[in-house]
Design a protein around this nucleic acid. Structure first.
Lengths: 112, 112
DNA sequence: TTATATACATAGTTTTCTTATGTATATAAA
DNA sequence: TTTATATACATAAGAAAACTATGTATATAA
């Protein structure tokens, strides 16, 4: 099982990337998608997800609309224009982060 | 410049790995080594480093001894036996973490 | 004498995540 | 019928990790 600290600061990036690839998603759907893609290893709990979504919305990266399906309310999230730019930025950051970590942990052959 | 959250929870792993590769190091030396290996991108600040070292020592993964060089005290850290096992465990964790992140962010070709 | 480098350390604050809890509906199982 | 599980949202309390700021002290270069 993954040592939580839920992907160590990468949650926002994961959410933004999922929304870039899927155009619109609701919270519960995101938790299931993460579970599916990670083959059950990563359980995105509500206590982590919803505050993160609310923050991204407050920061202007996401916009929302609600829809009722089977008498249950779904709150859909979509990238704003600013959010679209943010995905690119965060993805570059993530790529750089992974490379730095691999270098520091000697998980990559030295380039020189 | 790297968006700090200092390698997002990987600081302990980095320290342990450096100590595995170098047998013994003192705090300041670790900051310089990280700076060097990351080509100046990662500045490990004292506020992050020293508490991390103290915690690793309290957890029984590191042992210390001091030495005076040029009238300045250096506090050297070395892996304990338990620390040696911890490095292996943390490295596996880091490898899994990187793979999960790459999968979730679509930074790797799909395996199926 | 002032700034920078070396070398340690802690305090206060913020961010992020965890666990726990709460509301509510639908459906499958006992 | 009642209970558990799944779907769907949300917040509150607490812990962990990192940041910024500050403090002590010596050596050296400007």
């Amino acid at each position: 099982m993954s040592t939580n600290p839920l992907l160590k600061g990468s949650l926002q990036t994961i959410i933004l990337k999922l929304l870039e690839d899927n155009h619109q998603m609701y919270g519960y759907e995101i938790t299931q998608k993460v579970k599916e893609v990670s083959e059950g290893e990563i359980m995105l709990t509500e206590g982590a997800l919803y505050p993160a979504l609310h923050k991204l919305e407050a920061d202007g990266f996401l916009e929302t609309f609600t829809q009722v399906v089977d008498n249950r309310v779904r709150k859909y999230y979509r990238l704003t224009e600013q959010g679209g730019k943010e995905v690119t930025s965060k993805m570059n950051e993530a790529q750089a982060f992974i490379e730095q970590l691999q270098t520091l942990l000697n998980l990559k052959p030295t380039t020189k």
